[in-house]
């Protein structure tokens, strides 16, 4: 398996983390996203005409888009069928709903991060930050009531899903775009729980959480 990858990309990190959780070995093929702009070069555009990372190649099958790759990997390699519950229509719908929410987080929090960190000066950073806060208010409320109902994860059920993976990176990296998580305590607690999923890995900008009480 081969992943077209960039270390500082939260979307690529979703795939690296999930592959590690599933225990799948893969080759990293680094693309010089910045400053090289290699993802907009002819060689990479032949692989993905959208010029976006990540792209996964599994044997002869090739697939782009972080959320699509997560659902492909879960459906194919998660033997327990818990990460992407294809046999439970309601949960499956929920997972897809929150995966789309994860995409909106990319469109806002990640955009603000690109503006501040990689000088994407064409981005309207004020609007991007306001958009991120609007989403985080929704997610924090959702997770606060989930805690009241005894749930740990974004979607119903006792185990995490790929919706948790899809939302996690750009929330953790939000401060790099000037978006503080101070107003979202339920989100902050949830990020600790994600960090304690067996097989969790870090990327540049995200630290691990230390052991939870259960493991003590």
């Amino acid at each position: 398996m081969k992943l077209y990858d960039f270390e500082l990309s939260g979307n690529c990190y979703k795939i690296r983390m999930f592959l590690n959780i599933l225990g799948i070995n893969y080759d990293r093929h680094p693309i010089d996203f910045f400053p090289g702009n290699e993802h907009k070069g002819p060689e990479f555009l032949a692989i993905n005409p959208l010029g976006q990372l990540p792209v996964l190649v599994d044997g002869t099958f090739q697939i782009r888009d972080a959320q699509a790759i997560l659902s492909y990997l879960a459906a194919k390699y998660d033997d327990g069928g818990t990460w992407y519950p294809t046999s439970d229509p309601e949960r499956l719908g929920e997972v897809n709903q929150w995966m789309a929410f994860g995409d909106m987080i990319t469109g806002t929090a990640s955009a603000a991060r690109l503006h501040d960190g990689l000088s994407y000066t064409q981005i309207d950073v004020k609007a991007a930050r306001a958009g991120a806060h609007r989403l985080f208010r929704i997610l924090d409320e959702h997770l606060w009531f989930a805690e009241r109902e005894g749930r740990s994860w974004i979607c119903k059920g006792d185990t995490p899903t790929i919706a948790d993976i899809a939302c996690f990176p750009y929330i953790m990296l939000a401060l790099e775009g000037g978006v503080s998580l101070q107003d979202y305590p339920a989100i902050r607690r949830w990020t600790d729980r994600v960090k304690r999923i067996p097989g969790f890995t870090v990327m540049s900008g995200i630290f691990s959480a230390g052991a939870g009480v259960e493991a003590a």
């Binding site: 998580l181 101070q182 305590p185 902050r188 607690r189 600790d192 939870g212 009480v213």
Partner: peptide, 16 residues
């Protein structure tokens, strides 16, 4: 500055 159960085990709560 927090609710008592905001201070979850093995967590650091961010307040102001």
């Amino acid at each position: 500055i927090a609710a008592s159960d905001d201070l979850a085990p093995r967590h650091v709560f961010d307040a102001q």
